[in-house]
Nucleic acid binder design. Structure first.
Ligand SMILES: [Mn+2]
Ligand SMILES: [Mn+2]
Ligand SMILES: [Zn+2]
Ligand SMILES: [Zn+2]
Lengths: 131, 131
DNA sequence: AATGAACATGAGGATCATTCTCAATAAGCC
DNA sequence: GGCTTATTGAGAATGATCCTCATGTTCATT
């Protein structure tokens, strides 16, 4: 059975405040900054566990690094993420779900899943770039 | 200027025969098996160069590993990939392009790009799984 | 065909994210 | 308070990818 620990609470609390997608390393550092010492391995384990349970979303940055975020809804959805600061907007993917299922079946594929993510530069980061 | 070398030819020839998305490591091994000794670093450099030029597509597996494939068309498109063997079908993403641009603009994001990939188990791999 | 400047290669080391090991610790139950 | 067992974390291990730089090749030019 899952036990509640100081470390898991700390990660959960931090995730509740973040609106950006952050890497495990960043989360580890943010925890340290606020005084919550949590081992890096524990951060990884906790995030993985939350991801398995669907409580956090995981995206892969261009370099393949995993980035996590607690979204406001648990149901399947998509994102518009800032490539600079990680800020994310949750989106629906109107029509994509049916399209994916139809195309998968048409080609004889089973258990078809899909990913669809938008990446851009948010207004705030675009402003900063002008300096 | 780009020079033609034995190594680059070997990578290009192999890619021309493959219909699957393969990792750099796999491509390195496949080259070795066919007798084309190419340094791993060179395989990485060549694939990166081809990717920059848009001559190969790059996808990230669930574990973040990059997988490459030469597609039949250079223009932007999407894929339905087998999670087991890497076989891929090229797809268009009807409607997604406009949708992405519209949603991005609506949220004030600039330079909005998108990814949309389908992953499933191809008919052949599904058959093998039944053993 | 010979030359040479610039480009390319590769063995091995460096990075860096992520995972593993396992002894020490702490939750939750009695 | 004790006990059982899940959890933690320091440090090592793994693995993909990139970097270094001495050496090898390409190819425009002669
Ligand atoms: Mn969807
Ligand atoms: Mn598209
Ligand atoms: Zn931003
Ligand atoms: Zn398959």
């Amino acid at each position: 059975m899952q036990r509640m620990t100081r470390q898991r609470s700390a990660v959960a609390e931090l995730l509740a405040e973040l609106v950006d997608f952050r890497s495990a390393q960043q989360i580890h550092e943010l925890l340290r900054e606020r005084g919550d010492e949590v081992g890096l391995a524990t951060v990884y384990r906790t995030l993985q566990s939350l991801a398995d349970r669907g409580e956090v979303d995981v995206l892969r940055a261009d370099d393949g690094e995993a980035r996590y975020r607690r979204c406001s809804r648990q149901e399947h959805h998509h994102h518009l993420v800032c490539r600079s600061c990680g800020t994310a907007v949750e989106l629906d993917g109107p029509g994509v779900e049916e399209w994916a299922a139809r195309v998968g079946a048409a080609h004889g594929f089973r258990d078809v899943a899909h990913t669809m993510e938008l990446v851009g530069t948010c207004a705030e980061c675009a402003r900063e770039e002008q300096d």
